[in-house]
Design a binder for these strands. Structure first.
Lengths: 152, 152
DNA sequence: GCAACAAATTGGAATGGTTCTAAGTAGCAA
DNA sequence: TTGCTACTTAGAACCATTCCAATTTGTTGC
């Protein structure tokens, strides 16, 4: 047996199998880091695997989230989007274009944020979302190529 | 014409009328500040106004949000909740009980958070949500009585 | 007061992202 | 091979929310 890749390893850790569907979905999310919805993932995956079902896309995305390989992010009640960036970061939602941008957060700031919680409050996670308009073509094109982003 | 209350004034500012439905819905949200869903508001309002329709509850809540009298908050894809606290604040979502708590944010921290945005990003709003477990009966009972909260 | 107009409410149908269900398929273990 | 379990699949179901068309209500000018 060859050394399993990160996906197979993580799945195995949870007693799950690496399937062609899970692999191609994970690959799609890593390849274009534009926070696609389940429908968008479905459309992209069908290019490689036309027989896949939408239910499977939802199932696999849920599995990847469970295994901490992908993060689900929500904006208001819009369709859930998926993000392979596992570092703590905020999201910027550009209302004009609808695009999502990762925003890096200094560790020092994360500590300060957590410290506002009164005694008795134990937070497992924090979610920070900006809404507004972004106008930085340089950064956007870098993201489209899958390169380093303003926040990783 | 008597001096209009805050609700009537705000509605008038937007060219809207103060209706019995809008008044009772606003009152329900002010009275028990536990971030009710539209369905919960519907249930509470029907005690006073049995003939109101769910569509009207949704319409009125939307109107109150438009007039900046109430804020809509979302947690994952759960039903939208409504909050009369208009000061900048974060939310703590207690996963055990499902309850929502307002968390006050120092102005200094809000500035720091906004300053993490790279050039070209112009944020109109920030939303900060904690998830975890809270265990502070003193604070919870204070909230239930509609008194000062850990964050106002 | 009364017509005429605009705003608001209503019940029910429609929408749409997501989840459920039951049946089929595939891989692993004795 | 047989059995077992995990996984995938199509389609139905779910449910918060929005839409629609028909009233009802309120307001304004006469």
């Amino acid at each position: 047996m060859a050394a399993p890749d990160a996906l197979a390893q993580r799945l195995a850790d949870s007693g799950l199998r690496s399937t062609p569907q899970r692999e191609v979905i994970y690959d799609v999310i890593l390849r274009k880091r534009d926070h696609p919805t389940a429908d968008e993932v479905y459309a992209r995956v069908r290019a490689d695997m036309p027989s896949i079902s939408l239910a499977t896309v939802y199932n696999c995305l849920e599995t990847l989230v469970q295994c901490d390989l992908v993060r689900a992010v929500n904006f208001e009640r819009a369709p859930t989007r998926y993000c392979p960036n596992l570092h703590p970061h905020a999201h910027f939602h550009d209302e004009q274009s609808g695009s999502i941008h990762d925003i890096q957060l200094p560790a020092e700031l994360l500590e300060k944020i957590s410290s506002v919680l009164p005694a008795g409050y134990d937070a497992k996670s924090v979610q920070i979302t900006f809404r507004g308009s972004a106008s930085s073509p340089r950064l956007e094109s870098a993201e489209r190529r899958g390169k380093a982003q303003p926040a990783a």
